Simulated scan of single mutants.
Amino acid sequence: MSSAEIVVTLIAHGSELSEQTKSGFRAFLNDLSDVELEQEKALSVRAYDFFLRTQKDVAVIKETMGSLGNGILDVIVQKNSEWRKKKGLVVFDMDSTLIYQEVIELIAAYAQVEDRVAEITERAMNNELDFKQSLQERVALLKGIKTATLYDEIKAKLRVTEGVPELTRGLQKTGCKLAVLSGGFTPFANHMKEVLGLDFARANVLATETDASTGEEVLSGYTLGDVVDGECKAATLIELAREHGVPIEATVMVGDGGNDLPAMGVAGFGIAWNAKPKVQAAAPSKLNTRSMQDAFYIFGYTDGEIQELLK
Rank of each mutant, 00 (worst) to 15 (best):
V246K: 06
G163I: 04
E16D: 13
M264L: 01
M253N: 08
A235E: 04
I11W: 06
K143W: 15
V113R: 04
L142E: 00
F185I: 05
A281P: 01
F131W: 06
I306S: 02
R159M: 08
M94G: 12
G304Q: 13
E216D: 10
N190C: 09
Q136K: 15
V45M: 09
L309M: 00
D229I: 15
G268Y: 06
T174M: 09
N274E: 07
A275L: 01
T214V: 08
A140T: 01
N204T: 02
A108R: 00
N70C: 07
A235F: 08
P247M: 10
I6N: 07
K155C: 14
E102W: 01
L106P: 02
L142M: 03
V160P: 14
L219F: 08
C232S: 11
E194F: 08
E249M: 13
L224G: 01
D229R: 10
C232A: 14
M253R: 13
I6A: 04
T223Y: 08
Q133A: 14
D34M: 12
Y151E: 12
Q78R: 03
S18A: 06
P247V: 14
G221Y: 07
G69D: 06
D49P: 01
P284N: 00
A295W: 03
K85V: 00
S67W: 02
F25Q: 05
K173L: 14
F185W: 01
T208D: 10
K41H: 07
G183W: 05
K155F: 14
Q136N: 11
D211Y: 06
N80R: 11
N288V: 11
I238A: 09
L181C: 05
E308Q: 15
E36G: 11
E19R: 14
V90F: 10
E63N: 15
A59N: 12
L37R: 09
R53V: 04
A118N: 01
A207G: 01
G300I: 03
K233I: 01
Y301L: 12
K155D: 05
D31T: 11
K132V: 02
L219E: 10
G268F: 06
G170V: 04
P262V: 02
I11Y: 07
S67E: 10
A47Y: 02
I238M: 13
Q101Y: 07
P284A: 00
F51C: 04
F269D: 10
S33F: 12
I145V: 11
V60S: 05
S2H: 14
L10D: 12
S96A: 08
L219N: 04
V205F: 06
I271M: 00
S213R: 04
E38P: 12
V160N: 07
D256E: 05
Q20V: 03
A283I: 09
T21E: 11
A281D: 01
S3G: 12
S81V: 02
D152E: 08
D152H: 13
D93M: 11
R53H: 14
N288M: 00
F185T: 01
I238C: 13
D226T: 15
L106R: 05
E308V: 04
L73G: 00
G66M: 07
K79D: 13
G144Y: 09
M1F: 10
Y297T: 06
G14N: 01
D211I: 02
P187S: 02
D115H: 09
Q55D: 07
K79M: 03
V60T: 07
D260E: 03
A111E: 15
T97F: 02
S67G: 03
V35E: 11
P187L: 09
G215E: 08
